[in-house]
Design a protein around this nucleic acid. Structure first.
Lengths: 343, 343
DNA sequence: TTGAAAGCGGTACCAT
DNA sequence: ATGGTACCGCTTTCAA
C-alpha cells in the first residue's frame, strides 16, 4: 500500500540517496549514453536502487531542461472520420519507439477551434506538428507555426506557399483509374461529387476528374461541390444531382460522400450498381462490408501516417526538407458498387 | 521571419522585461485568479506586452511546479476499432475545456505493450487514467497504477477488486432485448458468439444471454467463444458454428464479430436474414450502411467517454468515488439483419 | 569517476 | 501592489 501522499512519486534524489551517490551520478548512470562515465559498480548499485524504488524518470522535467517535450501535435478534422484512425496509428506507432507521444487535436473543420488547439499545442511546446487540415486559401495557423519556427509535416493537404513537406496519396492517378474503370464499363455520363473546393485534395481530385473525362471521346462529366466530406453532405449533393436527371455513374471525393450517395439512391428507389454505379475514395475500413460493397480507391493510410512521422523525425533531427513531397501509390479496388452502364 | 533560434520561445521574463516589471508580477497579472492583486494599469501593460510578443505560457513548466501535468492517459486496445474513436472524442471534448490533454495509448490487447505504455504514461506524470482494456483475471498494470496512487476510471470493463469507478453500457439489458426480439420473430435456436471470456464485458453479455434464453420456454441457446473481438475472429467462430448445423439466429458480442458472421454466411451461400438473423452490439458508426443494415444494440459511446472524463475530473478535484458504477442505457436498433425465423 | 551548482520556465511564499 | 527567491525534477557544465 502507498505510504506517502498518493501523488508523491520517486525522484532522482530518492534513488541517489538510496544508492549513496549524488543525483547527477544517478542521472548519468541511468542514461545509456553517459553510463560509460560511471564505474560499473556504481551503475549496478544505482540500477538496483532505481528498480527497488520503482523509479520512472519524469519526462516532463527532463523535457523542460532539454528543451524537448518529446511530443508531437497531430491536427486532424475529426478522429471520428474513419479515414483518420489508421493514419493516427501509423503516426503513433512510428513515434513511440523514438520516445515521442502524439497529442491529437480535432478541429471539426472550424478555424477558431483550430486556432485554439494550436495555441494549446504551442503551450505544450510540441517538438513538431503533423497537420491534416490544410485549407487552400489563408492558413493562419500554419503561418503562425511557421513564424514560431515550429517544424511540421503536412498530411494529405498542402501547405500553400509555406515550405512544409507534404505526404499524400496519388489522388490524380486514383481518380483517373476510377474514370477509366467506368469508361470501360460503358459509362458516358458521370458526375463527380467533390469535397469543399478550398481543400487541396478536393481541388486535385476535381481537376483530375475533368482531365480524365476530357481524355475520353464522348464522355461527359460534371462536377458538383459538396458542402463537406460527410455522409449527409454527400447525400444532399446527390439529391440535387438526381433532381435534374440522373447520370449513370458517380465518382465521389471520398467514401463518406459515396455512402451518402448510396443512401440517396436507396431513398429514390434506385439500385446500385443497376441504375447508378458509385466509386468512392480512401477505401476506409469496412468499405467492403457496405451495401453494396464499395468500389473505391485504396489509399495506404497507415503508411501515410508512418511516412509523415518519419519525415517529421528527420526534421527534428535537423534535416531540412523544404517543399519535399512524398506521393504514395494508390490503387482502384473494384467491388460491388460499380457495374455495366444501364441499357 | 524568425530572427532567433527557431526553437527559442517567448518566456515570462521576456514579457516582464518588455512591461518593465518582475516576472512574478507578470505571472500574477496573466492568471485571472491572481490578477486582482495587481493594479489595473500594470495588468494592462503586461497583457499588452504579452500579446505583442505572442507569449504562450509553457504548460509543461507550469505543470512541473504545480505538480499537475494537465494530461490524462487514455488506454484502449486499438484506435482503429471503430468503437473507440467516438469514446475518445467524448473524453477529449470534456477534458479540453478544463485544460487537460488526452494521451492515447494503444495496447493491441498485448500485456507487454500495455505495461510499456503505462510506464510511458507514468513517466509523463499523467494526472489520471481512463482505462478501457481491463481483463478479468490479473491486471498487473491496474495494480501498479493503484499502488502508485494514480487516479483512474474504468471504461466498459471492470477493475476487478480495485476500487476504481466504472462507466459502462447496460450490457445485460441490451442482450436481453436482442434475445426477446429474436424470440418474437420466432427464433428458437440461437447462438451467442462471445468475445474472449477474460473480458468482463464478454462475461456479462454471455451470462445475460444464457439467462435470457432460459427465460423463454422452448428456446435453445449455446455460447461460442471467439478468440478476439474482431471481424476475422467472428468469421472463424461462425465457420465453426456452421460446421455442425446452423442456428436460425446469432447474437454477436460486438459489431465486428457480427460483420465476421455476415462474411461467413455469405461465403457459405447463406442469406441474412433469410437463413440466419444476426444481431450485433455497439451500433458502431456505419452499422446502418452494411450489408444488410445491422440490427444491433446501440451504446452511447460518446456519452460513455464524456462520463468517464467527468468522473475522472471529479476524482482529480478530490472527490472520492470508490467502486462507483455508472451504467448508461442502451437500446436495440432493429434494422435489416434480423427477420422471421425460416420455415 | 563523482560532486556541486546552475538553470529550464514557471508558481508561490515571504518581504517590502 | 510588486519584487526577490526558492523550488518543481531533471541535465549539464565545471571542479575536484
Amino acid at each position: 500500500m502507498p505510504e506517502r501522499d498518493s501523488t508523491r512519486r520517486v525522484t532522482l534524489d530518492d534513488v541517489a540517496q538510496r544508492a549513496g551517490v549524488h543525483k547527477a551520478t544517478v542521472s548519468r548512470a541511468l542514461d545509456p549514453a553517459t553510463a560509460g562515465l560511471i564505474s560499473d559498480e556504481t551503475v549496478r548499485r544505482v540500477r538496483e536502487a532505481a528498480s527497488e524504488l520503482g523509479y520512472v524518470p519524469n519526462i516532463v522535467a527532463r523535457g523542460l531542461r532539454k528543451k524537448a517535450s518529446m511530443t508531437v501535435g497531430v491536427v486532424i478534422p475529426d478522429l471520428t472520420n474513419p479515414f483518420f484512425p489508421p493514419i493516427v496509428r501509423g503516426i503513433e506507432d512510428h513515434l513511440q519507439p523514438r520516445g515521442y507521444t502524439a497529442l491529437i487535436a480535432n478541429t471539426d473543420g472550424d478555424d477558431a477551434v483550430e486556432e485554439a488547439q494550436f495555441t494549446t499545442l504551442l503551450g505544450r511546446r510540441v517538438d513538431g506538428l503533423i497537420v491534416a487540415t490544410g485549407r487552400h486559401g489563408d492558413q493562419p495557423v500554419l503561418e503562425r507555426a511557421h513564424e514560431a519556427g515550429v517544424r511540421a509535416v503536412m498530411l494529405n493537404r498542402d501547405a500553400g506557399s509555406l515550405p512544409y513537406p507534404l505526404v499524400t496519396g496519388d489522388d490524380a492517378t486514383g481518380i483517373t483509374a476510377a474514370v477509366e474503370h467506368l469508361h470501360g464499363l460503358g459509362h458516358r455520363d458521370v458526375v463527380h461529387i467533390a469535397g469543399p473546393l478550398d481543400l487541396s485534395t478536393s481541388i486535385v481530385r476535381a481537376d483530375a476528374f475533368r482531365i480524365a473525362i476530357a481524355a475520353h471521346e464522348g464522355m461527359r462529366g460534371s462536377v458538383v461541390e459538396a458542402s463537406a466530406l460527410t455522409v449527409s453532405a454527400g447525400r444532399e449533393s446527390m439529391e440535387a444531382v438526381l433532381a435534374d436527371g440522373s447520370p449513370t455513374a458517380v465518382v465521389a471525393s471520398n467514401d463518406l460522400i459515396a455512402l451518402g450517395v448510396l443512401r440517396a439512391l436507396r431513398a429514390h428507389g434506385l439500385t446500385c450498381p443497376g441504375d447508378v454505379s458509385v466509386v468512392g475514395f480512401n477505401d476506409m475500413p469496412f468499405a467492403e462490408d457496405v451495401q453494396p460493397p464499395l468500389t473505391t480507391v485504396h489509399v495506404p493510410t497507415t503508411e501515410m501516417g508512418a511516412e509523415a512521422a518519419r519525415m517529421l523525425l528527420r526534421q527534428i533531427d535537423g534535416e531540412r526538407q523544404d517543399h519535399a513531397r512524398v506521393v504514395l501509390p494508390v490503387s482502384l479496388v473494384v467491388r460491388g458498387s460499380t457495374g455495366p452502364a444501364p441499357r
